[in-house]
Simulated assay, not measured.
Amino acid sequence: MEKEREIKALFFDIDGTLVSFNTHRIPRSTIEAIEAAKQKGIKIFIATGRPLVYINNLADIAHLVDGYVTTNGACIVIDGQVVACHAIPEADVRTMMRFSDERHFPCILVGETDALLYNATHEVEEFFHRLLDLQQISSPVSLDTLLQQRITQMTPIITADVEAEIMPLLPSCESSRWYPAFADVTARGVDKGEGVKTVARHFGFPVEATMAFGDGGNDTRMLQVAGIGVAMGNANEPLKAVADYVTTSVDDDGVKRALEHWHVL
């Protein structure tokens, strides 16, 4: 068993970490573990690639959440207020849109409050419905209206090979990938790890007193930055390699087991 240490905040990825890809629900053991942590005075944060408008599956724990690190760290919301927002420069947004037009791939454009699937296809809409249980990908706004907002993330539905071609032409951006079918593109220097640091500074606790849970490539920096980085049993192998601890899967009480292992509960 590991030595007990004081943990002041827990950071959770959503898909494949808190929420099962199989059931689209948070396991009961995870809900109870988060409730127990909250009762001990530990703060609870979400750290996700989803924009706030796409977070539709946390009703069971929403009342326990102290803040949200959304769009892979590009937009951080605490107590309903945006405390950090990192926009992608307009030139890079336009470049991505041009590639989307030329190469005929859909791309989700995420603004401060809305999101649109640019060059949408029925197949891609169905794909995200199955994968993330999203009923609606695009907000009821026009493209012109969306582009008046700061764009915090772009999610092109492209292969890793196409991603490697495009990213050098987006000089102010970087990308991460947690699912083979698409990449998440944010402003350079933006990631979940920086989001954890921002939240820690905001609340005044050391980043060493944080514990983070994830399962995908976009969780890498978060697990490296946190005092304790936990990879789920269903995580990819590169993430497991950088984690301090590998727990069981989301469907096998992984969150609860890790919190017990580290004596947080």
Rank of each mutant, 00 (worst) to 15 (best):
P51R: 04
H129L: 12
F127Y: 14
V110D: 01
T210F: 03
V246H: 10
D92C: 00
S20I: 09
K43R: 15
S100W: 02
T248M: 07
A115F: 02
N72T: 08
G193N: 08
A84D: 06
E126T: 09
E6G: 11
D144E: 15
I14T: 03
A59Q: 15
T71D: 01
E208P: 06
G254V: 03
I26A: 10
I34A: 09
M232E: 09
F99G: 02
H24I: 02
T145I: 03
N119E: 08
V19M: 10
I7L: 13
D92T: 00
D66G: 08
N119C: 08
A84T: 10
N72E: 04
V225N: 00
I14K: 00
V264T: 11
T220C: 11
S138H: 10
A164C: 05
E35K: 15
A84F: 02
A241N: 05
A160R: 13
R177N: 01
L10W: 04
A187V: 06
L265M: 13
P89K: 11
S20E: 10
F21H: 15
E112Q: 14
P171Y: 01
Y245F: 15
A33N: 11
V199M: 11
V69A: 03
T220H: 05
R50V: 03
G214P: 00
M211Y: 08
R201M: 05
A87Q: 01
T17P: 02
